[in-house]
Amino acid sequence: MSVIALLSVAPVIEDSMATEVAKAVEALDEFDVSYETNPMGTVIEADDIDTLLAAAGAAHKAVDADRVSTVLKIDDKRTREQSANEKVDAVEDALGREARKER
């Protein structure tokens, strides 16, 4: 996969956003993408930019709120293929350890 993005979709509300965020994540299942949700957003991988943008748009539309805030940061590496896991592996190699620390 060559297009990787960090997607954050959230309703602008006072209460818990979990139910609406879950709708956004679930909308990704309709597309040929892989994804991993973390506390700050969802990392999406797709074979091409059009698929990624369609999935992100569907996630945005899935949130039922008067106001929705969406942030999409795209890494479209056009000269070679690189997965999200490979990007993390490169950082861990530079660190000489896992890039995670438990509190």
Rank of each mutant, 00 (worst) to 15 (best):
A54Y: 01
D76T: 02
S34R: 10
A65G: 06
R67I: 04
N38E: 10
T79A: 12
N38A: 14
S34E: 14
I49C: 00
I49H: 14
G57T: 10
K77Y: 12
D76I: 06
T42F: 13
K61A: 04
T42P: 09
E36W: 03
A62D: 01
D47F: 08
K77H: 12
A62C: 10
A62Q: 10
V33D: 03
N38V: 15
V33E: 03
T70P: 13
E45H: 00
T37W: 00
Y35D: 03
I44S: 01
D50K: 14
E81Q: 10
S34M: 08
V63W: 11
S69D: 05
R78F: 11
H60C: 01
V63L: 10
H60Q: 13
A59S: 15
A59R: 08
D75S: 15
D66C: 11
A62S: 03
G57C: 06
S34Q: 07
T70G: 10
I74V: 15
V68P: 05
D66E: 12
I74S: 07
K61R: 14
S69M: 13
S69T: 14
D66H: 00
P39S: 07
K73C: 13
D47G: 15
A46H: 01
D47C: 01
A65W: 00
H60F: 02
D66M: 11
A59Q: 07
